[in-house]
């Protein structure tokens, strides 16, 4: 059993932050890696990327958006409650090097993962430019933390209720046009956002890493449910990823695969309410 040490609601309660006591994982986890979590005995296994860690307190931080039954169930837990299983760290860690200037692009809950990676890049001595976006002001998360990490930061909202109006790709385009020293773009967020970022960076030929979030069961390379097409070969996101070179990822296929269980998800949520 893994105890929830701290709970924080963000974005009108649709995004939740948990600090979970998992000392062994907290010691080992690196930015970009994820854990598999199961709430109770009848629960499903869901992958959640670790957003932060505190090896001294023995906690890891996960941030998730409430989308289906399991995340709804997770939200219903309070400080002091426990989840049945947390397995990790899983996946390969993000490759962190001192390469100069990097742009970190995050959207929605993707910012949660992004800020862990951004921190690592900053610690490695890079000049970090942050671009984070959300639907509106209320859905924007971790702005303060990102400001603390990044040397420059731009915030966008789709409706203009805070920061610049529009998508994250607009300020990114500006940066790519103005600065020639950008060595790497890291994009984490909704698939459609990552796809558009890659479309843009491809025209500037700037290396772009993306963090994928396909459907997983075991997260240890056993089921192959998380297979994605990268450079036209089948890769397993849980053991070969979750971070891949954005230029090589087949985003359309990933989008199709991720939408396969929407109906089941609905059924499960409804059944749990009844």
């Amino acid at each position: 059993m893994f105890q929830i040490v701290r709970k924080q609601e963000m974005a009108k309660g649709t995004i939740i932050r948990f600090d979970i006591s998992a000392p062994k994982i907290a010691l080992k986890v690196k930015s970009g890696q994820f854990v598999i979590l199961r709430v109770n005995d009848t629960g499903e296994r869901i992958p959640l990327t670790v957003a932060d860690k505190d090896p001294f307190a023995g906690t890891i931080t996960i941030i998730f958006q409430v989308v289906g039954k399991t995340t709804a169930l997770l939200r219903s837990l309070n400080e002091g409650d426990s989840v049945k299983d947390v397995s990790g760290p899983l996946g390969r860690a993000a490759e962190i090097e001192n390469i100069g200037t990097v742009v970190m692009v995050g959207g929605g809950t993707g910012v949660a993962i992004l800020h862990h990676v951004a921190k690592a890049f900053k610690d490695a001595g890079n000049y970090v430019i942050g671009i984070i976006g959300a639907k509106d002001e209320a859905m924007l998360i971790l702005e303060r933390e990102m400001k603390g990490i990044c040397d420059e930061i731009i915030v966008t909202t789709d409706d203009g209720s805070y920061g610049q109006m529009g998508f994250v790709t607009e300020p990114l385009k500006k940066y790519l046009e103005e600065r020639y020293d950008i060595k790497l773009v890291y994009a984490i967020g909704p698939i459609i956002m990552m796809k558009n970022v890659v479309k843009l960076t491809r025209s500037f030929n700037v290396k772009t890493m993306v963090s994928l979030n396909p459907i997983m069961i075991d997260g240890t390379g056993m089921c192959g449910g998380c297979r994605v097409k990268v450079n036209n070969t089948t890769k397993f996101c849980c053991v070969d990823g979750p971070d891949f070179d954005g230029f090589e990822v087949d985003f359309d296929e990933l989008m199709h695969r991720n939408s396969l269980y929407l109906q089941d998800e609905k059924d499960s949520l409804l059944a749990s309410i009844r």
């Binding site: 009848t42 499903e44 998800e265 059924d267």
Partner: peptide, 16 residues
């Protein structure tokens, strides 16, 4: 899905 996650008991078990 079927054995470990007991999907054949969906939606009692959460895995579809």
């Amino acid at each position: 899905r079927m054995n470990l996650m007991k999907a054949y008991k969906f939606p009692e078990y959460d895995t579809p």
